[in-house]
Amino acid sequence: MLIRIRKSHELRDADVTPETLYKSRREVLKTMGLATAGAIGGSVIAGEAFAARLSYKERAITADEPSTSHDAITGYNNFYEFGTDKSDPARYAGAMKTSPWSVRVEGECARPGAYTLEDILKPHALEERIYRLRCVEAWSMVIPWVGFPLGDLLKRFEPANNAKYIQFETLADRERMRGLSFPVLDWPYVEGLRMDEAMHPLAILAVGLYGEDLPNQNGAPLRLVVPWKYGYKSIKSIVAIRFVEKEPATSWNVSAPREYGFYSNVNPEVDHPRWSQATERRIGEFRRRPTLMFNGYGDEVSHLYANMDLRKFY
């Protein structure tokens, strides 16, 4: 398998990289003037000098593949709230106001309410998770996120027994998100997970990318990352989290139920009606490569779907 989850003792003893050390390494790379450079541990990181703004445990989970370039991850995005062209988010997402930020927690839980971003983040240690991202449009990337497990946050709100699903909602600020003026989808954007999916240790909330704060076009300040599902499940710029009993509405499913199901697990055997999902183009590579079941995370997540017909529950 391509990913490696560290055992719990490793998690405890390995400490967060001191910011100064991290920074100095970047400085070295910069002064060496390398376009790409191997970082400690052998991964390849685009050699731009980023300000090391976040403290986090490096490489908690990695893909044994080079990360996609910072330019591509931040310049080629689907974030329809800013326009439907993939260069629109980089161009227009700067207008979004991400501070102050708060998240409404609603529904079947003991601690509903409005939480500031600081409230949300405070108890969680950040870690780097280098994940593959597979877009439903048959392209993919490898992305070094910085975040923390979604389940750890959800537990803090003490979900009730009848909370079977979670629904998430993206900011819909008409003043600052120019794409909202056209009804591409029924705004605001909503997504959802089944509770056991949400509690899976691979599902994270990300606040950073390449060691820095998340850029707006990547879903600042808080976004979901569910690496075994198509990219649109990983909802961006979250303003609401809802604990619900019934399978919640999800935007693409509402828009085209035949094309986008609730589960949307990466599955090379179930085609999108308009194109095959058997292969994908890794951004930066020329040829298509085969798409992996559950995006290569099958060992970790396939038990969640043990008795389900994935052709029916696509």
Partner: peptide
């Protein structure tokens, strides 16, 4: 029209 996702202006 069919090739584009959602309802798009272009």
């Amino acid at each position: 029209i069919m090739m584009r996702k959602g309802t798009q202006l272009e």
